[in-house]
Simulated scan of single mutants.
Amino acid sequence: MGKILKKSQITELSQKMNSKPGSLVLILTDKDVAVEGFCMSNCGFHGSNPKKNSAFIWVGNSVTQCPGQCAWPFHQPIYGPQTSPLVAPNGDVGLDGMIVNIASLLAGTVTNPYGNGYYQGSADAHLEASSACPGVYGKGAYPGYAGELLVDSGSGASYNANGVNGRKYLLPAVFDPSTSSCSTMV
């Protein structure tokens, strides 16, 4: 489909997948693929295919296009407090930034897969489970500070979740409606 894509082409690509009803399609684009709105208004998005009763998530690799926006806190931010970036848990700023965005969009997809599920605010400008807590990864987070995190003693990488085979990840907070606050892994 090329290296310059419109949002509609991402939707079209998701519909070409041989997915079963109720499935989730994950589309990742490489660092040299430009997608409409990427870096300007989003780092990824989710949508649905009503014909197949399925959902999709798209996330781009921002390392060469806008790491300060879509790979923060692993890269210096474009604006705001200029604190030192965190060390990426898996050693790849672009990939670790994608993990953060996948986790955020997965929370939104699970709670609002077809645009009529859980969200806050008006339907035109709603906040989903994770987008209601931007930049919050640990206790005490505020703009420019990701919060109190675990730090790997060997690599110095910051993380808040452990994965398979000892991998470490930084996952965003999600809004907890029972406490009306952002809930983090740490």
Rank of each mutant, 00 (worst) to 15 (best):
L86Y: 03
S62W: 10
P134Q: 11
Q76K: 15
P177H: 12
A141I: 07
S153A: 09
G60N: 14
S54T: 03
I57Y: 13
G68E: 05
V100N: 13
G117V: 05
D32P: 07
E36P: 04
V100A: 06
A161T: 03
A88T: 01
P50T: 02
S54C: 03
L171G: 04
G44H: 03
K139N: 08
P143I: 03
A88P: 10
G47E: 07
G163C: 11
A107E: 09
Q76G: 00
G44W: 07
P134L: 06
S41K: 06
P67W: 05
P50S: 01
N165E: 10
V186D: 08
T64K: 15
A123K: 15
S62M: 08
T109D: 04
V63E: 15
G156P: 01
V100L: 13
A34G: 02
Y137D: 06
S19C: 08
M40P: 00
Y169A: 14
G115R: 11
C66G: 01
N101Q: 14
K168T: 06
D152F: 08
G144V: 07
G68L: 07
V174E: 02
A71D: 13
V136F: 09
G140T: 06
G163H: 11
Q65S: 11
G37Y: 10
F38M: 09
K31H: 15
A173H: 14
C39F: 09
L127P: 02
G80F: 09
G94N: 09
L26I: 14
E12L: 00
I4R: 15
S41N: 06
G37F: 01
P77V: 02
L95R: 14
N160C: 11
R167A: 11
P73L: 06
G144C: 09
E36L: 02
Y114N: 11
W58T: 02
C70Q: 07
K20M: 04
L127E: 03
T111Q: 10
N53W: 00
A141H: 06
I99M: 11
L106H: 13
D92E: 07
D152L: 06
K139W: 10
F175K: 08
H126G: 11
Q82W: 09
S122H: 11
M1P: 10
V164Q: 12
P81H: 07
G2L: 02
L149E: 02
G60R: 14
S155I: 05
G60Q: 14
K7G: 09
V164P: 12
W72Y: 14
N49C: 07
S23V: 00
P172E: 12
L28S: 00
Y79W: 12
D92Q: 08
Y145E: 04
L95H: 10
K16N: 15
A129P: 03
R167W: 09
K31G: 06
Y142C: 01
A157D: 01
S104E: 14
Y114V: 03
K168M: 10
L127T: 01
